[in-house]
């Protein structure tokens, strides 16, 4: 088997007295879409934050075999890691274009950046129509499109998406999932956190179920969709 693109080993995170992650272990292989599913407060966002280095953690995180222990969060971007955070986190006073340029902050190849901006506009034509609009005045769905595009602007090898479908109308949700598949087919590995477990499992190669900071179940997306426990707890059937 090839080297995993991401290995998370015995990951612990504390928020003061709260033990949010209690020894998490999982791997993501190159080219996969892997989802983390779990109830509110299970620790999914915390996991992504630890991978990006914006919360402190113990244990180890390896990106393409390289430990990230001593790598600062901003340095991880040039190693090929990007995240579209929970709540989108677009820069509200900046225009759509400026947000995209921020996504390319770690790069300096101007003409390639221009090409990638065009690529984002092909993925989401809506963004091109709003190129000058300040991001804060866009609708939730448009902001989500912007957040995903902005994360792609660093040309990541591994893209972390935290609840990209949150608060969006069903039609937009399917569009977002289509884009996720498309981006993945272009060679970007994806680690996806979703409340919408059904959609997430459908597009995922594999998934991990997280409960109160621990992995309790893992399997192929299709298998988990048919798993009785998963169906009861996360699919509402």
């Amino acid at each position: 088997m090839s080297q995993p693109i991401l290995e998370v080993k015995d990951l612990h995170v504390y928020y003061g007295a709260i033990h949010a992650l209690k020894g998490l272990n999982f791997v993501v292989q190159p080219g996969e879409i892997v989802s983390l599913i779990g109830a509110n407060g299970a620790g999914k966002t915390t996991t992504l934050r630890a991978i990006s280095g914006i919360v402190e953690s113990t244990g180890d995180i390896l990106l393409q075999g390289q430990s990230l222990k001593t790598v600062k969060s901003y340095q991880r971007v040039s190693l090929g890691l990007a995240q579209s955070p929970e709540g989108r986190g677009v820069f509200p006073q900046m225009s759509v274009l400026e947000n995209l340029e921020m996504g390319a902050y770690s790069r300096s190849d101007r003409s390639e950046i221009q090409k990638d901006i065009q690529m984002c506009f092909e993925l989401f034509p809506r963004l091109q129509e709003r190129i000058k609009q300040s991001a804060g005045t866009m609708s939730g769905g448009e902001q989500q499109m912007l957040a995903i595009s902005r994360a792609l602007m660093s040309r990541p090898k591994l893209l972390l998406l935290d609840e990209p479908s949150l608060g969006l109308a069903p039609r937009i949700v399917s569009q977002i999932f289509e884009i996720i598949k498309k981006v993945n087919s272009q060679g970007v590995t994806i680690l996806l956190v979703e409340q919408n477990a059904r959609m997430a499992l459908k597009v995922s190669n594999r998934a991990y179920v997280i409960e109160t900071g621990e992995v309790t179940l893992e399997g192929r997306g299709q298998d988990l969709l048919n798993d009785d426990n998963v169906r009861r707890s996360y699919l509402g059937v």
Binding site: V77, A82, G89, F91, P92, M94, E101, M102, Y105, S154
Partner: peptide, 24 residues
Amino acid sequence: TKIGKAMRAVSTNVVVASLMGVNT
């Protein structure tokens, strides 16, 4: 300028700015 944009980004949201690769 690029650094000016980074200043605006950091002042809006330090965490997201560092997710963009900004050395805050």
